[in-house]
């Protein structure tokens, strides 16, 4: 077989393939890595989960290790995130976006974008953890939209906007407009909580 006139490309770009086959900064079993902060996002039920450990020196990410349960693009995107993040200041690292990871990988299929690029969120969680553990103020947290529905990548800012504009007043509205809570459903209570909060803030209740 394989004597066709048609030979397709691999599923993902060569960079993704390279990171999938040779993941960088993987948290190896038994390795002596003492993280200053650890963050974990996603869930096994959603099919993607990431854990990131960071070492911080002089306000910069000096080293990083990660583990990922997920598909090839999840593995590759966490690996790429680790390469981008090491050497960054905490502030830069906090603002690392999924787009930066994706473009460094040479692109990902559209449907892979939301579900598999969670590395940046795990990194933020690790930075939050580091700051909290060391009793340091966290000047970044409030400025960044927080993902509430991880499966569909729906943020608190999105929910806030929809409530503010009066477009969403019930959980069903939000689910219909953003797709939130339509996959694993684990975020349902947090969505309702955020919804109720914003309804109160914007006088929609």
């Amino acid at each position: 077989m394989q004597n066709n006139s048609f030979m397709a490309q691999w599923v993902y770009t060569d960079t993704v393939k390279d990171h999938f086959m040779n993941p960088r900064n993987l948290w190896k079993e038994g390795e002596d890595f003492q993280p200053d902060g650890v963050g974990e996002v996603g869930s096994l039920a959603c099919g993607d989960q990431m854990r990131v450990g960071i070492k911080v020196r002089d306000g910069k990410i000096s080293d990083l290790r990660w583990l990922t349960y997920g598909c090839a693009s999840a593995i590759a995107s966490t690996s790429m995130m680790s390469e981008l993040a090491v050497g960054m200041s905490l502030e830069e690292a906090y603002h690392l976006t999924p787009q930066m990871i994706t473009s460094a990988l040479g692109g990902l299929p559209e449907h892979k974008f939301h579900c598999s690029v969670l590395g940046d969120k795990a990194l933020r969680a690790a930075i939050d953890d580091y700051l909290e553990k060391n009793g340091l103020p966290n000047p970044y947290k409030t400025k960044v939209a927080k993902i509430i529905c991880e499966c569909k990548g729906v943020t608190d800012v999105q929910i806030e906007e929809l409530v503010k504009e009066g477009k969403a007043l019930t959980f069903e509205d939000l689910s219909r407009l953003t797709g939130c809570s339509t996959a694993c459903g684990k975020c349902r209570n947090r969505i309702i909580e955020a919804l109720e909060d914003f309804k109160h803030i914007y006088g929609k209740d």
Partner: peptide
């Protein structure tokens, strides 16, 4: 503890063609 699409694609790199029930291979989330 092992996700299906990753297994499928590592097998693919060895020339072994299978399928998976993982959401990741279908483009859906379920």
């Amino acid at each position: 503890s092992a996700e299906g699409e990753s297994i499928l694609l590592y097998l693919d790199l060895e020339g072994i063609e299978v399928s998976t029930g993982s959401a990741c291979a279908t483009g859906s989330l379920e």
